[in-house]
């Protein structure tokens, strides 16, 4: 075997190794999760900002909403205490048992608005001035820092793109019908717009259509912040009025407890 052939082979191995390391370093998903997130969590939130958390706190068993265990609620409360959000959108959160249990652990100053299913909007500060529910959609009118907010909390269908297109569309229409300075729509929308469709996807085109329809009306505040749910999907969203400036948005990794399969998505906004 001559030496030059061995050197050529070595060069190929080196190229392969370097390219793999390069690919890893350039991986956008890895940067989003390990890079920026690691830098600023759990940092203090910027002053005069509005912090919103949306979190599907339920388990991944895929069944009906179920009551959280005491230690799950402890974990949720611990996370919320650290984050100190002004507004929390919860999904797979069974009212009233879970709410009463959470209130015992976490100061829910302004109260809550609940929906018929498993959705709740919880405010620590500010003041609720109105609230209603339409099926699994919770709608709230909220005063904060002297401004009015209309808020929609939603847990869209996991099983049918057709169903969630209808749910998201109706939620947005109901939300935008409310007169307010700012509008917010958030929750587990069960669509992953960042993800490439695949052979077993449930109609990615329908999801793209409703996402684009929504994105024409409100801004996706969590865009580019990386996956929030198993397996590596961005299912949790917060859409906000364009007038709200996005300061930061990241899922906080490592806060799941028990059978939870979502991370809390934390968004800091500046009221302009």
């Amino acid at each position: 075997m001559n030496r030059s052939a061995r050197l050529v082979e070595l060069a190929l191995w080196l190229i392969a190794a370097l390219a793999f390391f390069g690919a890893r370093a350039l991986d956008p998903a890895r940067r989003a999760v390990e890079g920026d997130a690691a830098k600023w969590w759990p940092a203090k939130r910027p002053e005069r900002s509005l912090r919103v958390v949306t979190w599907n706190v339920g388990g991944s068993d895929g069944g009906q909403p179920h009551s959280l265990r005491a230690d799950d609620l402890d974990a949720v409360a611990r996370t919320l205490l650290v984050l100190d959000p002004d507004l929390v959108l919860l999904q797979e959160f069974l009212y009233p048992r879970d709410f009463d249990a959470l209130r015992a652990r976490f100061d829910v100053g302004a109260g809550w608005v609940r929906a018929a299913g498993d959705v709740a909007i919880v405010a620590r500060r500010g003041q609720f001035v109105g609230g209603s529910s339409q099926g699994g959609l919770a709608l709230a009118e909220w005063q904060f820092e002297g401004r009015s907010f209309a808020i929609a909390g939603l847990h869209a269908s996991a099983w049918s793109a057709r169903a969630r297109r209808g749910e998201i569309g109706r939620a947005a229409e109901s939300l935008l019908a409310i007169t307010a300075d700012f509008h917010l729509l958030g929750g587990d929308l069960n669509l992953d717009i960042d993800r490439r469709g695949d052979l077993l996807s449930n109609d990615p085109q329908r999801d793209a259509e409703i996402y684009n329809w929504l994105a024409e009306r409100l801004v996706d505040a969590g865009a580019g912040s990386g996956p929030t749910a198993e397996p590596d999907r961005r299912l949790d969203y917060l859409f906000v009025s364009n007038a709200l400036e996005r300061l930061a948005a990241r899922p906080w990794k490592g806060r799941r407890h028990g059978t939870m399969d979502h991370d809390p998505l934390v968004v800091d906004l500046r009221i302009r």
């Binding site: 190929l12 191995w13 190229i15 793999f20 390069g22 350039l26 956008p28």
Partner: peptide, 23 residues
């Protein structure tokens, strides 16, 4: 940057197959 990530991954896998083939 995203494209560079995919290009690097492709180059790496191609180089790996070529290294194995050439060896």
């Amino acid at each position: 940057r995203e494209l560079a990530h995919h290009a690097a991954a492709l180059l790496g896998q191609s180089a790996l197959f070529l290294a194995l083939a050439f060896r």
